[in-house]
Computed example of a mutant assay.
Amino acid sequence: MSKPRIFILEDEALIADHIAICLEDLGYEIAGIADNGEEALNAIEKQNPDLCLIDINLHGDLDGIDVAQEIRRRFSVPFVFVTSSADRRTLARVQRTEPAGFIVKPYTSEDLASNIGIALYKASQKAVQPISSSEVAPELDDSFFVKDKHELIRIRYRDILYAEAMDNYTRLHTQKGKFVLSQTLKSVDARLNGQGFLRVHRSFIVNLLHVDLIAPRHLLIGDLEIPVSESQRARLMELIRLF
């Protein structure tokens, strides 16, 4: 299997070199390095990397957010910001580009590993699950039904965000809303096994597709912080790196 190829857009040469070394140690291939937006866009068009790491402050007329907008418009390449710029105005601009991740400097090798792993995993899922596939030929084993009052509602596995223990019940958080299941979290875990889910804590199961950030003792799905037990952290990192 070929190594994922990552392009680095960073205006400080020492930082760019350090990122490149970290990525190679993690098993990735460097698709190229640039310090300005124009050069980066030309290189990305030629190299077609699997992922781009983008600093916001760059040499030249374009900043990293401008470059990200062009990447989103012209190429099917996910990108992760690696920057020290995290003020409210900058974050508002960043959010509009819909990045695959956001790393605040100073970063660690673990920050790079987790964010890149998640970004590549999400990109691979989009590649194998076209938007129209469920509408044209839905799979019978890609979903299940839950009872909500007098209705049965179909829940697709990919739409589940996370599951939360409630004594002998489980609250299922999905993109459609919240549902209470009359099953323990252990039973739900057995049902979700092999579908891209992981029980990261005795009280939580998460869908790896929706994990946005992994920290030493927790992860984020959107703005929600979910604890990660020490015993499950190694398994989580193993799965992320595997993808």
Rank of each mutant, 00 (worst) to 15 (best):
K3Y: 04
P4L: 04
R5D: 06
I6M: 01
I8Y: 03
L9G: 08
E10G: 11
D11V: 12
D11T: 06
A13V: 15
A13Y: 09
I15Y: 03
A16E: 10
D17I: 10
D17R: 12
H18T: 15
I19A: 04
I19E: 07
A20S: 15
C22I: 13
E24T: 08
A31S: 11
G32D: 07
G32S: 05
I33D: 10
N36F: 05
L41E: 01
A43C: 10
I44D: 00
C52N: 06
I54H: 01
D55K: 01
N57K: 12
G60C: 09
I65R: 03
V67S: 11
Q69T: 13
Q69K: 15
F75I: 08
S76L: 02
V77N: 02
F79G: 14
F81T: 08
V82I: 14
V82H: 05
T83S: 14
T83P: 08
D87V: 09
R93L: 10
R93K: 06
R96L: 11
P99V: 04
A100E: 08
F102T: 02
I103L: 03
I103Q: 02
I103E: 02
Y107K: 01
E110F: 03
L112K: 07
I116E: 04
K122V: 03
Q125R: 12
Q125S: 07
K126V: 10
A127P: 02
I131C: 05
P138G: 02
P138E: 08
E139A: 14
D141A: 03
F144C: 12
F145H: 08
D148K: 07
R154Q: 10
R154K: 14
Y157F: 15
D159K: 04
D159H: 05
Y162F: 15
A165Q: 05
M166D: 08
N168I: 02
L172E: 03
K176V: 05
G177W: 01
Q183T: 12
L185Q: 06
K186T: 12
A190R: 08
R191P: 01
G194W: 09
G194K: 09
Q195T: 05
Q195R: 14
Q195D: 07
F197K: 11
L198A: 07
L198Q: 08
R199A: 12
R199S: 10
F204E: 11
F204Q: 09
I205V: 13
L208T: 06
L209S: 08
L209H: 10
L209D: 07
H210W: 15
D212V: 11
L213H: 09
A215K: 11
R217P: 00
H218M: 09
E225C: 04
E225F: 00
E225N: 02
E225R: 08
V228I: 13
S229V: 09
E230M: 13
Q232A: 15
R233A: 10
A234C: 12
A234Y: 11
R235T: 15
E238Q: 15
E238I: 13
L239V: 07
L239N: 03
I240E: 07
F243V: 04
